[in-house]
Simulated scan of single mutants.
Amino acid sequence: MIQSTFEQELDRKGTITYTCRGVSMLPLLRQQKDLFIITKRQGRCRKYDVALYKRADGAYVLHRIIKVLPDGYVFLGDNCLNKEYGITDQDVLGVMTSFVRDGKEYAADAGGCLLYAKVWYMLYPVRRLWKLLKMKVKGIGGHR
């Protein structure tokens, strides 16, 4: 069986539904539990959109846009420490329009999801510091 790429599926159907692989979008999306629906990108993306993009190495990534620039975007996974720069419109395949958790579908642009995105990003400096401290403590603890 020949598998098609995300690009081919989006060109063919306009949307794709897929399950999370990885923890970079926790707590919004749970690995291999939640589904997300991506719609082919139409025009520029907006701040706080969760978008599917393809890195130069061929890896597909689903992360949140935290800054819209004239020539691209800055991305950050909800559960990540490091921002990703240099992603252009040509790299972005589509935007998450909804996700399914425990059989119920939630619109990605609904008020509650947008509020979550804003608050979660506002807390980024605190979350980053907390994660870095936890990593440092674990590193020190491992050398005893």
Rank of each mutant, 00 (worst) to 15 (best):
M1Q: 10
I2H: 13
S4Y: 12
D11I: 03
R12L: 07
R12Q: 14
I16L: 14
C20G: 13
L26G: 05
L26I: 07
Q31N: 15
Q32L: 09
K33Y: 14
D34Y: 08
L35V: 00
T39N: 06
K40E: 02
R41M: 11
R44T: 09
C45H: 01
K47P: 00
L52S: 00
Y53I: 04
K54F: 03
D57R: 01
G58W: 07
G58H: 06
V61W: 04
V61I: 15
L62M: 15
L62V: 15
H63K: 09
K67Q: 14
D71S: 14
D71W: 02
G72S: 05
G77W: 10
D78N: 09
L81F: 03
E84P: 06
E84R: 03
Y85Q: 08
I87W: 03
T97P: 02
D102S: 09
D102W: 04
K104E: 15
K104Y: 13
Y106L: 10
A107D: 13
A108L: 02
A108F: 14
D109P: 03
A110W: 11
C113H: 08
L114V: 15
K118C: 03
K118R: 15
V119F: 11
W120P: 05
L123S: 10
P125A: 13
V126T: 08
R127L: 14
R127Q: 09
R128A: 14
L129Y: 03
W130E: 13
K131E: 10
L133K: 08
V137S: 04
K138M: 10
I140N: 00
H143M: 12
R144E: 12
